[in-house]
Design a protein around this nucleic acid. Structure first.
Lengths: 207, 207, 207, 207
DNA sequence: GTTTAACCGAGACGGTACGTCCAGTCTTATT
DNA sequence: AATAAGACTGGACGTACCGTCTCGGTTAAAC
């Protein structure tokens, strides 16, 4: 998760690595306290004990800063082998839901996605920093299920299935948590996973 | 859509109904041209040929105004009887996807949902004006499928199933369209519907 | 002190005389509480228990309203015969100073004069309602002094002398009270009167 | 004239001295064109080619800005030795009258004095920036007249005489020019000076 | 005793300016 | 060349009044 792709010179005083970390941490703290729309660059700079100039030297805009600040949280997502596809899916859904419960994620994720609908570079940054980070879990889960024999091998699977599954899982959880604003509790996870697995099984039976 | 629930007096000059319509129309136009984050109250007022105070007399904030301006678009969603549950689901998915392709919806929907994570009244307004408007389609579709015998009657269905199905459908379509930023084309609709129906059938087989 | 020169019809419901009095009283109260620059038409209307429309039907602007509200205070100025020119002048200076100490006069008088430098109708209104009201005291005082034999008869006096005396008296008192912001106490009145009388005597000696 | 007594830091970008001058110049231009009551901060900022925030960083209010903009004009007042007390007084009266004829002074002076009746800091600013600047001319004139032997030495003069003379001169001229709205022409100056000198002589004769 | 025309209150209307806030840039001196 | 500090331009914010207008209703003189 590079902090900034802005080109750099070799000579002169090097940038403070400490500042980077402090800024991202301050950004998350500000998101928790103020939410996305009331977060200001000046406030973040103040919290980080850094001048505004230092922020702008690293990030071109508030949106990119927030994406980077939040992206690191998605690194926590893991897929330990829980022994069955059902357990793996339930695990990832629970993890993702827990991430969305965090106030910094909740307030920031939808906001930057909204901004990205009119900002191609931002969309790309989100794709790389956040979306792909999640999608790898789906790939890993499928591969593991195939190894276990719970799913047919790739040869018999239509292309784009991973993408479909990803949109269904991430979409359903986000919608439940943020739009419907209902808790993603154990019962919901169980039923959603059952629905998804049933669909996958049916799809596997008749491609 | 009611413009504002603010209590009104009986005396004095009545509010101009024309202004209400002009403002909402101007808001949609501004969303298309500028997107959510660059839309300003002053600009909307200018487009509507109305003073800024007239906007603030009716809507407390940009967010509430945008919700009302966009909400009316969700009234277009319908569920004509297409003869089978498959066809009904595909129809509603296509309609919803088409709505999300509209620039005013695309830029506004995620933004107001993001804001609503820190604004309870806004969340309620969204729930009433937008979410419930969509959810009724799920209820109607299920009732129709039960009448056709495609789904078991309510007695055998767990509570919350409608909500689950709604989150899956709406979530998947939104995620595909706005997060993954991929087209919701016929092929995707077909495969998503198949997945969902397979899951529903499996769930019905073993409650 | 006509309330308003705005042309009127003969028929229809006549204007409420009570409203006029209430508005002027409310204006003075608002001047005392808020001062000239924070006085608003809406506030005056509210205090008077009257609609804003009613104000504007009678006075074209805040300035004219304030002039009328304050002008009536200048009617209190009187020139009882105190037996000598010295006593008469000291009396009028003290009266005028007392008037300028009143908060409504203090805050309003300079303000409307300032406005009148760019508003000919307002200047005329001030001249008629306020300036001429004061000037008559000078005329009366001079006539009385001539009757007493303290001053030579008009035949020996240069034209414009009354105006000069008036500007000196009113100007000095206003400047002392509002610009220098020092009290117009008995000592100052005595010395100022002595100065003025000395000047008048010298002028009379050698026209 | 000092632009602002607000304490300043040592670090950071220093304030632009050019901006200060441009703002004061723009303020005077706006006073001439628009008068005091129609002068707006935004307009001044625009004329000065400066952002509104830059104005507010230096002056807390329109009133203080106008005082500073006008104060510099009072520096022009001088008292060259014209050889006699009469000539000196006539000279200063003419100068002061000429200053009051300038449109920026005419419209601004009474207005800020009016405001100062309810604003102690503003009154102090006016006293320092404007009143004291004028008063020194009276002191200088008296000293010179005493040196010439036209007036008795200080030992025989009551305290506060300078203040009295100042209020009489400034008050009479202001009243003539702004309230009576009559020209301060050579004839008026001659007669006013004669009146004042006569008074002074009489006062000197019998303290 | 009805017209009837002007009044009245209330409050919405189009405007203008306010004073504040923030984005993003620039200018210092310092490290 | 990066840094902290803070001034800079520009522009939107939400509020306050201005003076006008539209309501439903009232009032007293003229018919």
């Amino acid at each position: 998760m590079c902090s900034a792709p802005i080109p750099r010179s070799r000579t002169g005083r090097p940038r403070s690595a400490r500042a980077d970390a402090a800024i991202l941490e301050a950004t998350r703290a500000a998101l928790v306290e103020l939410g996305w729309s009331k977060l200001t660059m000046g406030d973040v700079a103040g919290r980080a004990g850094v001048a505004k100039t230092t922020l702008y030297r690293r990030w071109a805009s508030k949106n990119e800063l927030v994406v980077d600040a939040v992206a690191v949280l998605f690194d926590e997502l893991e897929l330990p082998d829980r022994g069955s596809l059902t357990a793996d899916i339930e695990g990832v859904v629970r993890q993702f839901a827990a991430l969305l419960e965090r106030p910094e994620t909740k307030t920031a994720l939808m906001a930057v996605i909204a901004e990205s609908t009119r900002d191609e570079p931002l969309r790309e940054r989100i794709r790389v920093s956040i979306v792909e980070r999640q999608k790898r879990l789906v790939l890993e889960g499928r591969r593991r299920a195939q190894a276990r024999g719970e799913l047919p091998t790739t040869s018999g699977t239509a292309p784009g299935t991973d993408d479909l599954i990803f949109d269904v899982i991430a979409g359903a959880v986000v919608h439940r948590a943020l739009v419907s604003a209902e808790p993603v509790d154990a019962e919901w996870v169980r039923r959603f996973t059952a629905l998804l697995l049933g669909g996958l099984a049916a799809a596997a039976a008749q491609p």
